[in-house]
Design a protein around this nucleic acid. Structure first.
Length: 183
DNA sequence: ACGATGATGAAC
DNA sequence: TTCATCATCGTA
């Protein structure tokens, strides 16, 4: 996906990321999985979004033009992978919460399955070896982390409330969690 | 149900 | 400087 994909409404991007391939290349080994769960964090008013605190060293990346990687540590031990969205000045990002059909390849062609799914944002970053070194980098093959069109599969999209944001007042009930359900 | 474990931001 | 908070996970 090129940058323009990420410069749109965060809810749209979160929805359209479902079914796409998430790619990760490390030392010539390519990992990929089909994105199956996302959450949108959109705008300075959204109390569930770190960006509601304003511009800080951590949140600054979300205020910039979309198409970059936002990685942060939570609970002292888990990295969360996010893709920034929207145009310069508007803070927003999509949290990637899970992939299905993860697989790897040593030659970028012949992929070998790893397991059925990688559920949960902390398990995903562990499996794909994603940490803060990727923070603020471009979503691009040259970075080693990027997104491409997914395989031809039939699925529908289920929405729900975002996980773990009960503190966010009226924002906690927004249906900004998106899940891929294979049909 | 709960503890592990440390960055973050706000208050002082 | 301290303090509460936390887009989680694994074990129980």
């Amino acid at each position: 996906m090129d940058k323009r994909f990420f410069l749109r409404d965060t809810r749209t991007v979160a929805r359209e990321l479902l079914g796409k391939y998430l790619y990760r290349e490390i030392n010539g080994i390519v990992f990929r999985g089909i994105i199956s769960e996302t959450e949108a964090y959109h705008g300075p008013e959204d109390l569930a979004c770190h960006c509601s605190k304003g511009i800080t060293p951590r949140t600054e990346i979300m205020f910039r033009e979309g198409g970059r990687i936002y990685v942060y540590l939570i609970y002292g031990m888990y990295y969360m992978l996010n893709f920034t969205t929207m145009s310069d000045g508007f803070p927003a990002a999509v949290l990637i919460r899970g992939v299905i059909e993860p697989e790897f390849s040593e030659n970028a062609r012949d992929f070998i399955p790893l397991q059925a799914k990688t559920d949960g944002p902390g398990k995903l970053t562990k499996a794909f070896q994603i940490d803060k070194k990727l923070n603020t980098q471009l979503i691009h093959p040259s970075t080693g982390l990027w997104v491409e069109k997914g395989p031809p599969i039939d699925f529908k999209i289920v929405t729900g409330k975002r996980v773990g944001v009960d503190y966010a007042g009226e924002w906690k009930d927004k249906p900004w969690r998106f899940l891929l359900k294979k049909s």
